[in-house]
Design a protein around this nucleic acid. Sequence first.
RNA 1: CGAGGGGUAGAGCAGUCCGGUAGCUCGUUUGGCUCAUAACCAAAAGGUCGUUGGUUCAAAUCCAACCCCCUCAACCA
Length: 470
Amino acid sequence: MAKKYITTAIPYMNGDPHIGHAIDYCLGDVCARYYTLRGNEVRLQAGTDEHGNKIFNKAKEVGVSVQEFVDEKTETFKNFIEKLGVSYTDFVRTTDPEHMKRVQEIWKKLEKHIYRAKYQGWYCTGCERFITDKEYEENGGICPDHNKSYERLEEENYYFRISDFKDRILEAITSGEMKILPDFREKEIIKLLKESPDVSVSRPISQLTWGVPIPGDESQVTYVWIDALSNYLTVLGYPDEDISEWWPAAAQFVGKDILRFHAIIWPAMLLGLGLPLPKTIVSHGMILADGQKMSKSVGNVINPIEVVEKYGLDAFRYYFLRHIDTFSDSNFTWQRFSDAYNNELANDLGNLVQRLSTLAMKNNISIEETEYEFTKEYNELMEKFYFSKALDYVWVRIQELNKRIDAEKPWSLAKNGETEKLQKCLKNLISDLLANAKMLEPFLPASSEKIFEIFRGSITSPETPLFPKG
RNA sequence: CGAGGGGUAGAGCAGUCCGGUAGCUCGUUUGGCUCAUAACCAAAAGGUCGUUGGUUCAAAUCCAACCCCCUCAACCA
């Protein structure tokens, strides 16, 4: 049995779960369920990124210990993931001692590509961060948030020599060894890669305490990259365990905002460790509310849990996997959501199940259980991660069934006593429905299972509709 | 300045690579059916395909210029 490893991005624990995280999880989950149904052994990783100043400060602000703070946040995220029906198998926290120990080992393995250097730049003591020269000019040398002049500051950091790997990464991308989806993002990355500088991978402990200490240098702490990106490996047990059965990952799902780190710094790290590169990095878009970025200050934030509670988990998954494009930014509006729910889930699919189960019941039809195979077209779309297109494809087939019922008029056959013809007609319709239900399983696991239950053994028409209308 | 995406019926989108008098879903209107969650099926109305120019027998599709919208822009995830 082939093994497939799928990863999702680990959210930073300074905020609460939101729709962007939900999309990432759902995509990973669909992919995992699909591979499982194809007969693969699948591991789906999820996790949390818990180090850094922002978290440290936030905990102080709330007045709890940092560990308490991240423990609680992680629980919140775990609950969130479970409410979305994500079938993850592994969970990693960057504050986990095991992870931290492994990060230090990874650091040591990368040491020949790491050097110490001074960084000089404009710094805001209010923001506690360096700003770019451009930002400095734009703000006229004064921080707009703190109304303070920027200071010229020098800091010594460790740097990771990306330039050691650029050629190799470029080659991997162009040869298809590491595919970046969608194509237009791949183009973007190729351009960015060429001008990518080395990255700073540490901070002096005076600046940052909440992180993984650098082995052999107590004055410095690892900065986000090596700590967070390593999670994909440490959760598998690297470097203590042999991970060759699982690594390279079949697919890594990330938001477009963090693609560059995953397509440049991350591959460089892997090459430095002598590990193969992930087969695919899938970058998804952002979800907009009425064409606008969601933000708390604008007050247009869509809470995924609210959608789930109002319409059900499968409805949420359906909408966000079909009408939110897998790769580009898409809009969410409650109007479009409820249109899709009523027209597609309730009318097209729900009602189809209802009419076929009633017809079968009235005419004493029973169906033998068989294994339903995915069609070639469906597999092609799924393997390319065109999830929204795969759902479109299945939906056309569902709508065709409604047309066929009208064309074949089983109720007339019953009236005319054409029993044999009727039996054949209904059995065909039902088994085609079940074949489609199978292809819906990665997307709508609960509804797919319900459909199979309805048509299993002696067929019963469901008492409550699959997708009730409010 | 730069880079990426986009501008096609009231709305949301496909079609653009490989040119051939525009297609899907929703909405609207009309008709049909009765197995069904007032669901389903059929049909109709509705578009100078961002602008201008070019290539061609023929352009949403190729070329050039321009306009508008969105996103990203280097250690702050």
